[in-house]
Design a protein around this nucleic acid. Structure first.
Lengths: 239, 239
DNA sequence: CGCGTGGTTGATCGGATTCAACATCGGTGG
DNA sequence: CCACCGATGTTGAATCCGATCAACCACGCG
C-alpha cells in the first residue's frame, strides 16, 4: 500500500526510530503515518499547549526553544533528519518547536502512536534508546554552555552541524575530508544555541575564517577543508 | 524474603522506578537488588569505563561530571533520592558519577537488570518515562547555563535543591512555608553546576543573604522563609 | 598547636555584551 | 530595471559582569 511504498525509499530508513523494528511493528507504524511539509520559521508546537501528534524528521532541521517573557531565549535542542519530535506521556511540552529550515515530517497521531508503544515493547525500546542518546547529547551541550569560550562554542556548533547534516550516516570523519554545507540557522539562532549574542557569533565566525579553520561562501555556506582542526577547537585542545 | 522486606520500608518506594510496577516485576527486581553504601566523594563510575551495575538512589546525592584534561569541569546532572544511576544499552557512560554526600544505593547487576527490561515491557516503560523527565530537566538547565545571570543561577540551584531534597514528594510549595536543609554540595561543586567560579558562588550567596532572600547557618545550612521570592528570582521575574 | 582544606573578600583584568552605525541581501512595486 | 525597504549581518567603541589573582579567615584533624 501507499505508505509502505514511501517507507521503502525513505532517506532516513536506516537510522530513524523505525529502523530495526520487526516488520509487523514497522507496518503498523507506516499505516498510521502521514507526511507533512512546513516552511522555515513555522511553529510546530507551542510550549504548554497540547500536542496531538509525534513525528520523525525526514529532511530539514527543527529547534526546541525556551523563551522568557523578557525576551531571553535559549535553543535547548536541535533536531536533524531521523530525530524524533514530540513529548510522549505528557499533555504538552515545556518547549516550543519551530522549523529553522523547510521541513518534511513523517507524522503520527498521538493516540495511535501511544497505542503502538503500548502494544510493541521493541518499539518502546527503540524510543528509550533514542531518548537516552538525546539525554547524553543534552548533557554534552551543558558543558559547552557552562565552560567553553565563545570561539570553542562556535567551533562546537559548526562541528555538530557538519556531523549531523553534511556527513549524516557516514562513518568516522577523515581528518582531511572536504565538507561543504549550508547553515540551517541564522546568526541569531546560532547565538541562541550557544548562549551568546548574534554580534559575538558574527565576530567568532570571522575569527575562524581569518585563522583558516573554515571558509565561507555567501552568508550561509560553510566549507571545511580540515575537519580535524575544527574538532580540536571544539574539544578545547588548542593546536 | 529479605530483600522484599527492605522494599516494604523503602523510603522512596512511592516515587522510584519500581513504584507502580506490577508485583511480579517488582518482586523480580527486589530479588536481584542489593544495598550498597558509599562515603561522600567516592567515585561511583569513571567515564568511558564499563559499568557493571545500575542503581536507584535511596538517600544522598550524586553528581554526573564532565571533566577536561585542562581542568575545566561541569556538573551535567544532579541525582537525588529515587533517581536512577547508570547508562543502559551502552558499555560505558561519557560522564563520571561521584557521591557528593554519603550515599545509599539500591544496586542491580547490569545483565540481570537488562534481562528484566527485556522481559517486562512495563518496566522499560517506567525507565522511558524517567529518562524523558531527565531530558526535560537537562534542557531546562541548559537555559540556566546559557541565559541567566550569576544571581539567577544561584537562586535556580538553591530552588532546585530545596524542591528535590527538602520537599521531596510533597505537593506544590506554599509561598510561606519555612524550609531548612543542608547543601549537598561544596562551593566548588555548586560553581561546577552553574558554570561559575567558586568565588562568584560565595559572593552571590552573600548577596542573597544580605537581601534577605535566604538565611544561613554554618557553611552548609540554608534556611528559606520565603520560597516564593527565591522562585521568582530563579525564574528571572524581578520582584 | 600547626597544618591543610574549604570558604570569604578585595582589587584588577578581560571576554563578551551593549549600543550604535553601517553594509548586504532579497524582495516588491513604481 | 532599479530604487526603495526591511530583515539580516557586520563592525567598532564603550561598558560591565564574572574571572582571575591574591590575601586572609575558619574550621577540622592529626
Amino acid at each position: 500500500m501507499k505508505t509502505r511504498r514511501y517507507c521503502d525509499n525513505c532517506p532516513i530508513r536506516d537510522r530513524a526510530l523505525c529502523s530495526g523494528l520487526s516488520s509487523p511493528v514497522a507496518e503498523a507504524l507506516s499505516r498510521i503515518a502521514h507526511f507533512k511539509h512546513f516552511p522555515a520559521g513555522q511553529v510546530l508546537q507551542r510550549s504548554h499547549q497540547d500536542l496531538s501528534w509525534f513525528a520523525v524528521i525526514i529532511s530539514g532541521v527543527a529547534k526546541l526553544v525556551k523563551t522568557l517573557p523578557d525576551g531571553r531565549q535559549q535553543i535547548v535542542g536541535l533536531q536533524f533528519p531521523a530525530d524524533f519530535l514530540g513529548r510522549p506521556f505528557a499533555v504538552s511540552s515545556a518547549f516550543r518547536a519551530e522549523a529553522t529550515t523547510s521541513l518534511l515530517l513523517c507524522c503520527f497521531p498521538k493516540d495511535a502512536f501511544e497505542n503502538l508503544l503500548q502494544q510493541y515493547p521493541c518499539f518502546e525500546g527503540a524510543l528509550l534508546r533514542h531518548t537516552l542518546d538525546q539525554l547524553d547529547m543534552a548533557r554534552d551541550w551543558m558543558f559547552t554552555l557552562g565552560r567553553k569560550t565563545a570561539q570553542e562554542r562556535m567551533a562546537s556548533l559548526l562541528f555538530l552541524i557538519a556531523e549531523r547534516l553534511a556527513r549524516s550516516g557516514k562513518q568516522k570523519a577523515s581528518e582531511e575530508e572536504r565538507i561543504e554545507f549550508d547553515l540551517p540557522l541564522s546568526r541569531t539562532e546560532m547565538a541562541d544555541c550557544l548562549g551568546l549574542t548574534h554580534e559575538t557569533v558574527s565576530r567568532e565566525l570571522r575569527e575562524l575564517r581569518e585563522t583558516g579553520v573554515i571558509a565561507t561562501r555567501g552568508r550561509r555556506t560553510i566549507i571545511l577543508s580540515h575537519l580535524g582542526t575544527l574538532e580540536r577547537l571544539a574539544d578545547c585542545r588548542q593546536p
